[in-house]
């Protein structure tokens, strides 16, 4: 089983150790958090110096963000061809296939649509077997999708460690499992934005921010949720440290360790 570490902040290279053979770097959730050119350059240097593989992680993205992203892709393909790029936007996949044949596309966890809402655990044992099976499966169980991904150079898909378990078999694809933080939902109406300015309480929309997500973390508790929801920036996560027993059967060949929520 390959072990990778996923960081979004270069300072978190402190978590890197000999047991990791791959470094994930980037952000999946917010185009304002796409790393700077210098940060990417420094991370690439680190991977070269330490002889580890590199995976660049990208978010869903507007046209404005795509322009910035392409500058980083140019750098990566120049310095470390063969690197992986996790796409969470089919527009990014299209660009990778049009212009970056020396980068390897990996389908991000946002594009795997399995339900993650933890309150599902309060009812899943009471649901019909067919419904419970549905919630443990994914459209990645459908061969035509796996074939399409293969035709588009995608050989790996990223999965969250959902509480209800994963029970499907990938057709000619490998999977990575993110541990311990699973994402539940994301927004561009970010509640961290201006969260320390009372007069902006009702400013709910897409507005410039001060990257308050780097400062504040919110914890949401409700009796119907079996775990605490963690709201970091524009996204909500939960923590699940228990690894599934059927990883080999599913096709999971890589564990991606998140030492912190990658925001």
């Amino acid at each position: 089983m390959e072990r990778a570490i996923f960081i979004s902040n270069p300072n978190n290279l402190k978590y890197f150790g000999d047991d990791f053979s791959r470094l994930y770097f980037g952000n999946e959730f917010c185009e304002s958090l796409i790393p700077s050119f210098t940060e990417v350059k420094n991370i690439l240097d680190f991977t070269l110096e330490n002889n580890v593989d590199f995976t660049f992680v990208t978010p869903y993205i507007t046209n404005a963000g795509l322009k910035n992203l392409e500058m980083l892709l140019e750098k990566i393909v120049l310095v470390k061809p063969g690197s992986e790029v996790v796409f969470n936007d089919y527009g990014v996949l299209r660009i990778l296939n049009k212009r970056y044949s020396r980068l390897v596309p990996v389908m991000g966890r946002l594009l795997n649509r399995m339900k993650r809402g933890p309150r599902l655990m309060m009812v899943i044992d009471k649901l019909p077997q067919t419904t419970a099976e549905y919630f443990r499966s994914s459209n990645l169980s459908v061969p035509i999708l796996c074939r399409f991904l293969n035709e588009n150079r995608v050989r790996r898909v990223e999965l969250d460690n959902v509480l209800q378990g994963i029970d499907f078999i990938l057709d000619d694809l490998e999977a990575s499992l993110y541990v311990p933080f699973a994402y539940v939902t994301t927004t561009r109406f970010c509640l961290a934005n201006s969260c320390d300015i009372p007069e902006k309480s009702e400013m709910i929309g897409i507005f410039p921010c001060k990257k308050e997500c780097k400062t504040y973390t919110f914890y949401l508790r409700n009796e119907i949720m079996p775990v605490i929801l963690i709201r970091k920036g524009n996204s909500i996560f939960f923590r699940n440290d228990s690894l599934p027993e059927n990883m080999e059967k599913i096709g999971i060949t890589r564990i991606v360790i998140e030492p912190e929520i990658p925001m």
Partner: peptide
């Protein structure tokens, strides 16, 4: 990109029926 599941129960069980984003949470930071 939202993976909360809606409609896990009928209106008689509000905590499962309501959209998860609209529930009352105890929030700390």
């Amino acid at each position: 990109f939202c993976t909360f599941q809606h409609g896990l129960a009928d209106e008689s069980f509000e905590l499962l029926h309501k959209n998860a984003c609209m529930l009352h949470y105890d929030i700390s930071a």
